[in-house]
Structures are given as C-alpha cells and as structure tokens.
C-alpha cells in the first residue's frame, strides 16, 4: 500500500528540497536554482499522476488509427494524455521565467556588485 504511493512521496521530497533552497538560501542564483528544482518536481508529480501500469505513449501509429477496433484497444492501454499536454507548456514557461529571474539577478549584480541577498538589503538606498 505504501509502495504504490512511494513515487509521489519522493516527488514531494524533491518539492520540499526546492522550497528549502528558496526559503533558506541567501544567494540569488541559489534561489533561482531552487525555483527550477521546484518546477521539475511539480512537473514530475503531474506526470506520475497520469501513468498507467504498462502503459504506452499516447501516440497511435497510422495502422492503429485505420480502424476503430484497434484504436479502442490502443486507448485501453495508453497513459493519460491530459497531464502531459499541460506539463509540455509548463516546461517551456519554466525556462521563460528562469530567463526573467536571471535578467533581474543580472541587473541586481550590476547595481550592487553581489548576489548576496543580505548585503543587497544592507546596501539599499
């Protein structure tokens, strides 16, 4: 019973590690890496939710698409396509947001000369 929930638990552990890095670290680049890890963990969790034991990828071959009977047997053995479709966009959004965060960090480094949050706070004004 616990074994069937073990992948979820490990994905949750990855999520917690990402949160820890975001909350506890002082370096801006470290925080960006934490957000990236958090992003991976959430994507992974959504993907795990849609897996079916022994399932195939949700892409039918043209031979399978030829008749409705073969399509029905294919659909009975395929993994869930909906989480995959949602995660696909989320991966690219993660990269876009990472680039946005990196450009903010570059501006901060240009202004204050450091990536350290505490020193940036001291240097304020």
């Amino acid at each position: 019973m616990t074994l069937t929930a073990l992948p979820y638990l490990l994905a949750l552990a990855l999520m917690i590690i990402g949160l820890y890095v975001v909350v506890a670290k002082k370096n801006i680049i470290k925080i960006i890496l934490g957000v990236a890890i958090l992003d991976y963990a959430v994507n992974l969790f959504l993907l795990l939710l849609g897996y079916r034991d022994g399932g195939t990828a949700p892409i039918a071959s043209p031979q399978q698409a030829a008749s409705s009977d073969t399509l029905a047997t294919f659909a009975a053995g395929s993994v869930d396509p909906v989480p995959q479709a949602l995660v696909l966009t989320s991966i690219v959004i993660g990269l876009g947001c990472l680039a946005l965060m990196v450009s903010l960090a570059i501006r901060l480094h240009e202004k204050f000369g450091t990536f350290d949050m505490t020193r940036i706070r001291e240097l304020k004004g």
């Binding site: 690219v92 990269l95 680039a99 450009s103």
Partner: peptide, 12 residues
C-alpha cells in the same frame, strides 16, 4: 517559442 528563447539568450 524559438524566436522568444533565442531573443532572451541574445539579450543576455
């Protein structure tokens, strides 16, 4: 997506 990601890298 291609032009956007490349544009960001170019800006960086």
């Amino acid at each position: 997506v291609g032009a956007g990601l490349f544009g960001v890298f170019l800006a960086l």
